[in-house]
Design a protein around this nucleic acid. Sequence first.
DNA 1: GTAATTGCAAATACTTTGCCACGTA
DNA 2: TACGTGGCAAAGTATTTGCAATTAC
Lengths: 142, 142
Amino acid sequence: MSLHDDLLEKARASGLRRTKALEAILTCLADHNRPMTLAELTSCGHLSDQCDKATVFRLLQRLSDKGMVRRLGLHERAAYFTLLLPGVHRDYLICTDCGSIEPIDAPCPVHKLEEEIRQETGFVDLYHELEFFGRCPKCASA
Amino acid sequence: MSLHDDLLEKARASGLRRTKALEAILTCLADHNRPMTLAELTSCGHLSDQCDKATVFRLLQRLSDKGMVRRLGLHERAAYFTLLLPGVHRDYLICTDCGSIEPIDAPCPVHKLEEEIRQETGFVDLYHELEFFGRCPKCASA
DNA sequence: GTAATTGCAAATACTTTGCCACGTA
DNA sequence: TACGTGGCAAAGTATTTGCAATTAC
């Protein structure tokens, strides 16, 4: 079963209806494998073209409520949304010039600290976000 | 020399004029010791009351250009701004319910990874942001 | 005196909601 | 059929800019 089918199934199981917009959004997020803005998703080829941004927005909201999507702030004015896959954590490397976003594959070194914070502060539902910003080689040489 | 004076001096040295608004903003940021939004700064007691938000915005922009302030996205719709002190790096713990923001005093475990990324990717001017999100004990029990 | 800075107001950008039509279950 | 969902359009919130008046140097 593909990632896309898996996600769709999960969304269905959590109460969402199987609509074109839902499929399009899940496909788009899964294909790109990086956080995307509402605008990007709304104009993301194939099926998404047909979806109003309000629809995409509300779907992302629902998916976020179900814990399948997370909303990020990455310095841009627009919010970013990314798939939340069980057991998968991802950090990002972002170019402050051209805005490119790429996932970092190195293991995240923060989990230990997160555990300490959980115990010392009593915070619950703890998670973290880690982003690296800089200028990519291409932008740096330009 | 106080932190405030130190900052003012630095701002002056980098070409900014010594105005009421500049002083007010530096004071406010230094006093609060945490990221603040444009709205917070604009209505931050004492002197800041007198500053238009456009003024505060443009000053933050200039301070950011000079490397004295950094702009953060912390999940809220509004952007946050924080002082950038030489040699000081700060991570934050944020309550997703009440929005409280507190600095984490534990040493940041990310510098090693940052160095690896610098070397492997060729990114320059690299820095990172690390935030922990969760619900604080007060909100969790409510 | 000159150039940076300010305030006000308007423009822009992005997000969020209301309402009724529509499609899925 | 019933209720979640979709599209359109409008409202809301935050950011950003234009311009003339003011202020720091």
